[in-house]
Amino acid sequence: MALGAFLLWVWAVPAKAGDPVTVKVGAYEYGVVYYFEDGSPRGIVPMLIDRLNGLQDTYRFELAETSSRRRYQALMNGELDLILLESAKWDWPAFDVLYSDPIVREKDIYLTLASQRDAKSLFADVSAHPMLCVLGFHYGFADFNADPDYLRENFNVELRYNESEVLNGLLAGEAPIGIVSAGFLARRFASDPRLHERLIIGDKPDATYDLVSVLTRESAIPLDEFNALVARLLAGGDVEELWRQLHAGVSG
């Protein structure tokens, strides 16, 4: 190829610098934040990713699955750029991270079987009774300490791998109390309305918390730019409405 023709060819090829910057968005199975249905990922995280990509073309947000216990290291070692959605009350203060503006609010609730003779007394002091909880999750009754050894040594806690196992264990009588997110329970009520008759929800939640995104200082998108996108997402009110729909039947 002649030099002149080569230079024209180089000039005609789109510059790689103009390609969208990939932002790896971490998510793990939790409530209606992220779950699987018919083998496909569902929840508000995939929906928010679609909306973020639709708002602009500077960044390309991509889903990257992790686990509740691995998410901290995955973010800090660069496997992820940010995690949707998290609470700043969880283990994050131990790490050098940044928090986005609040996006939605969630709560964790106490459940027992409708067949319990005195549910009010049971909920009055939950720490005095066996409880089913999720490994790697944070609970208000334990001051958000998710260390499994701490939970087992200080409380009568049985740990399961996800909220489905917690609810199924409660229904099977494995413990008198189970803790799940409001979003998860709403999803189960929607799929099986008969559960309403089998469960009693505690009057007070275990915890109520804002969900934000967690970024590192090396994340592919700067915090101020991400917050600007969050503000645009929330401005139309559709994210709030979507969250409300995902909690239909259970206040979130």
Results as ranks from 00 to 15, higher is better:
R188Q: 14
D125M: 07
A2T: 14
D96M: 06
F144M: 10
A2Y: 07
D118E: 11
L85Y: 03
E241Y: 03
Y35M: 09
Y34G: 14
F95E: 15
P222E: 11
L171N: 11
Y72L: 06
F123H: 03
E165A: 06
Y161F: 03
H196E: 14
A27C: 13
A27R: 12
R187Y: 08
L85T: 14
E65P: 11
S87Y: 01
G178S: 08
E240C: 04
L159D: 01
D91C: 08
L185M: 10
Y209T: 04
R71Y: 05
V126R: 01
S127G: 13
P93A: 04
D224E: 15
W92I: 10
K204L: 09
P93W: 06
N77K: 10
A119D: 06
G169T: 01
L229W: 03
D125Q: 13
T112V: 14
D101T: 15
N168K: 06
G237L: 11
S115Y: 02
L7F: 07
M47V: 12
D203S: 10
A64H: 11
L233D: 15
V21F: 02
R194K: 14
D91L: 13
V45H: 02
S181K: 09
Y150I: 07
Y99D: 13
R42S: 06
H247I: 08
P41F: 05
S164F: 00
F226Q: 07
N154W: 03
V157A: 06
D224G: 10
A12T: 04
N227D: 15
R188H: 13
E153V: 03
D210G: 05
M76C: 02
L7W: 09
Q56C: 04
L234N: 03
N168S: 08
A64Q: 12
W9K: 12
N77D: 12
V104E: 11
A231P: 08
S181Y: 07
A12N: 11
E158Q: 14
V23P: 04
E197A: 07
A94R: 14
L199Q: 00
E225T: 15
G39M: 02
